[in-house]
Design a protein around this nucleic acid. Sequence first.
DNA 1: TTGGCATATCGGGAAAAACCGATATATATT
DNA 2: AATATATATCGGTTTTTCCCGATATGCCAA
Lengths: 99, 99
Amino acid sequence: MDQVEIFKALSNKARLQILNWLKDPEVHFPEQAEAGFANGVCVGRIQEKVGLTQSTVSEYLTSLQRAGLITATRTGQWTYYKRNEETFAALSKLIQTDI
Amino acid sequence: MDQVEIFKALSNKARLQILNWLKDPEVHFPEQAEAGFANGVCVGRIQEKVGLTQSTVSEYLTSLQRAGLITATRTGQWTYYKRNEETFAALSKLIQTDI
DNA sequence: TTGGCATATCGGGAAAAACCGATATATATT
DNA sequence: AATATATATCGGTTTTTCCCGATATGCCAA
């Protein structure tokens, strides 16, 4: 759990927005309903919603993943990303105790 | 409470270190014991401990202050900085609910 | 095997952050 | 008034971040 890496990942409006959307995928990504949300949301859906290029969104998701804030699941040609709530819980606690 | 500004302020090892030292000023800044710690620790003490230049430390403290993580009190020629625990508590809660 | 779609990676330009040294400002002392 | 001390601000160099377009890779369908 690299604190600086986590805070850097959180230091961007678009990435915070994505994390927020991933809290309620069924609300924010209804287009993906038929595929289900068990593994999260795929890159393309996030990209069209956030309005940045595909490469930028892919990089942002990778950085969130490296920070441990989301996890990736590859299924066929899609990569699904979902929040890793354990990290958020740990971070919340860390701010109360360590920082 | 600007989330991005807070996370940016926290995205740096030296600034995290300073915040951590300020949790226990009497432990980490015993040189300042006679002046007391009611208003925190003055810039010079922090600077010599963190080992960066005076200008850098001053800027770092200002950025932490802008983020609401510390408060400044000017007394004579010294500026004392101390943690603003309310912001830390709010941030911890914010991570549980908003992010 | 060819083509199409989803994602990742690469190379780069512009903007911001990480520092620094020099200088300015404010307060205190003599 | 002159000097000293503490901090803030300014100007600059280097590194990092923010994005992009182009290209590569991996999977699937025809």
